[in-house]
Every structure is written in C-alpha cells, then in structure tokens.
C-alpha cells in the first residue's frame, strides 16, 4: 500500500530531512510514526500525499510512483487519501457541513448525493448535531472531528494524520484517537505521526521511529523493545 525504498529527501535550504528510509505499510495496517520534533515525520507524510518529491529513492502509494508522478495526477491521488493535521485546516467562513461537503464538491461528486454523504460522516464522528456550526463555535476536539469527517467523506484507502492530537487536551485526544482506531477497524490503513508516547503505548500497533531523518526502529522488523527506553 505504502512503500518507501531507500528514500532520501534534501531541502534546498536545510540539510537532509530523510536519510535512506525504507519501510512498507500494508493495506489496512495502523502505523505510528514517532520521533522528536524535526525528525522527519511530516516529511514522510508529505511524500505520501505528493506534497514533496523524494530527492532519491522510491515512494509508492497504492501502486502509484510518487517520484515521477505528473502534477495533474496529484489531485486524483489525494482524493483517495484522507489527511488531517494538528491545526485542523478548516475554512473559517464555512459551517462544519460545508467544510465537509467542500471536499466532495472538489471531486465533482453528484450534487444530489453530497448532503447525505456529509451527514453520514458527520454522524460517524459524532458531530451531526453541530453540522451548522462554524469552526470558531467548536472546541478543538470538535474541529478535529470535522477535519476527520472531511478526510473520510471520499472514502479513502489510506488515512494520514500529522500530530492530530497535538493541540488537544487529554479527553479530546482520547476521542480522536478512538476515531482513528475505528477508521482502521473498518479496513482503512492509518499512518499517524505523533510524539505522544503514552498514546503509542496504549495500542498494539506498528511503530516506526525516526531520528534526524533516519529510520532507527521499526517494530515490524526489529526486536520488540522496552518503550520506556526509547529516546
């Protein structure tokens, strides 16, 4: 599903963000991407949704090569991915419903089916009652649920989350994490970047750890280790 082979990423200004990273995430898998700030987690995710291209090596996502993907194929890839961020990235002048519907309109979905599909995902994330609310009227946890609903509405095969709980309190964090687990349980692969090791310990999922751009630990390949010893 997601395959990195000897991936290097250098930014014009700044050194190597990724150094020889290789891993494979299977269909339906849940994988944590951990590491300190600046370790390269966001860069890995950006390569998956083709916001960046690898400097060398190969990135493949559901059979598509990212390295030499034509720019006009990028939107098509993104419609098959669901992406959420620490800062939610909602449109402030649109209601929850409109924010979610927007992701469908972009794909030229049939207008008649949009409302029903939007309500279905809003119900799924537990926000059906706040469909008419604007982002500023919602708590951080609720805003992230709207963002998750927007990411889900196109029925993605891969769900990417870049520190989705970074701005949330403990209770909201648990709720959002549970949602991601549910999404994974229904068969969607989930890649979640986080440095919240408590969260990582809570679930028996795969852990891929980066350190200064290098992959230093992959629970699917390496010996199990004591999480507490992690740097």
């Amino acid at each position: 599903m997601i395959k990195f082979t000897n991936v290097f990423k250098a930014f014009p200004k700044g050194g190597l963000a990724l150094k020889d990273v290789s891993f494979h995430i299977a269909k339906g898998e849940f994988a944590f991407l951990t590491g300190h700030s600046g370790a390269g987690k966001s860069t890995v995710l950006k390569l998956i949704y083709a916001d960046e291209r690898p400097t060398s090596g190969e990135v493949r996502v559901s059979g598509h090569g990212i390295t030499d993907m034509r720019p006009r194929d990028v939107p098509l890839l993104r419609r098959r991915l669901g992406i959420v961020f620490q800062d939610f990235r909602l449109l402030e002048d649109r209601t929850a419903e409109e924010n979610v519907g927007f992701a469908l309109e972009v794909t030229a979905a049939r207008q008649s089916t949009i409302a029903a599909r939007v309500m279905r995902v809003l119900t799924q994330v537990g926000l059906a009652a706040k469909a008419q609310a604007y982002p500023r009227e919602l708590s951080g946890g609720e805003q992230q649920r709207v963002a998750i609903a927007r990411a889900l509405v196109n029925e993605p095969t891969v769900f990417l989350a870049d520190e989705p709980t970074g701005n949330l309190d403990e209770r909201a964090t648990r709720g959002v994490f549970q949602l991601l687990r549910d999404i994974n349980a229904s068969g969607t692969a989930v890649v979640m970047a986080t440095h919240d090791l408590d969260l990582v310990r809570q679930a028996p999922y795969r852990v891929i750890e980066l350190q200064e751009g290098a992959l230093v630990y992959d629970s699917a390949v390496d010996e199990p280790r004591d999480q507490a010893a992690a740097p």
């Binding site: 419609r79 992406i83 927007f102």
Partner: peptide, 16 residues
Amino acid sequence: SREIAIMRLVGATDGF
C-alpha cells in the same frame, strides 16, 4: 491562499 492550500489538500485540480 490558505483556502487554496486546503482545496489542494482535498484533491481539487488547478482548473477547479
């Protein structure tokens, strides 16, 4: 520009 970035993120084509 923020709105444009979000549109791209959810898979809007440049034409759209």
